[in-house]
């Protein structure tokens, strides 16, 4: 057992290096990314989220959306993310440079949302879907987020924001369903989820 000493010291050093590899090197390699200039314009991608969308991100986190929805597109030839129309290209480190915390997710009980803003730009659709997912997507198992909406007695004019619900989902007459500030913020965030801008490091198939 005299070689044990050498072997075990080797083992220890390798173990410590794992930490450097898994935590430190990605940090150095990916931690200092800059936004990329968009060709033919003075704009850069990505941009930090605007005020309302940034608040909506908080609502997304508080609702635990990440447990059923990913925000990452796997590359062509690995899974069918692109073929399903979830995005035109794989997502890369630059797409996430402003994300704190990251919301990449690990489960697709629901579809990927990396580009939901581009795929589903209508705020009307999002409100109906959040109020009750079965309105827009029969058979969905997504929870209803009714608690982000308010049932109000209509006094005077109908609210501009009130949901236009199909007959069977309508509240009793004289009442309307209006989104709370949280619902408005969440929808603004979902509409802002758009990683379709072409990037050099992620070829578009």
């Amino acid at each position: 057992m005299n070689h044990a000493a050498t072997i075990f010291v080797g083992v220890m050093l390798t173990f410590a290096s794992a930490w450097l590899g898994l935590v430190f090197l990605p940090y150095v390699q990916l931690g200092n990314i800059e936004p990329a200039a968009i060709e033919g314009s003075t704009d850069a991608y990505p941009k930090p989220l605007g005020g309302l969308a940034a608040r909506g991100r908080g609502v997304y986190i508080a609702g635990g959306c990440v447990y059923c929805h990913t925000q990452q597109i796997r590359p062509e030839g690995f899974g069918a993310d692109i073929e399903r129309g979830w995005g035109p290209r794989r997502t890369v480190a630059r797409d996430y440079m402003y994300d704190r915390p990251h919301l990449m997710g690990t489960n697709r009980t629901g579809p990927d949302l990396a580009n939901i803003g581009a795929r589903q730009p209508s705020s009307k659709w999002h409100h109906l879907h959040l109020y009750n997912p079965r309105i827009t997507s029969p058979g969905s198992v997504m929870p209803s987020f009714r608690y982000l909406y308010e049932k109000r007695k209509i006094t005077g004019e109908r609210s501009r924001l009130a949901l236009e619900l199909p007959e069977e989902w309508k509240p009793e007459s004289g009442y309307e369903i209006v989104p709370t500030d949280e619902a408005l913020a969440l929808v603004a965030y979902l509409q802002a989820l758009d990683h379709t801008t072409p990037l050099k490091e992620a070829e578009t198939p």
Partner: peptide, 22 residues
């Protein structure tokens, strides 16, 4: 380490994912 790097002094973007799963 994970609390410091992800909650109290969050790193940005995708290195978080590798720390998260580490």
């Amino acid at each position: 380490v994970v609390e410091l790097l992800m909650v109290y002094r969050p790193m940005a973007g995708s290195p978080q994912a590798s720390v998260n799963w580490w």
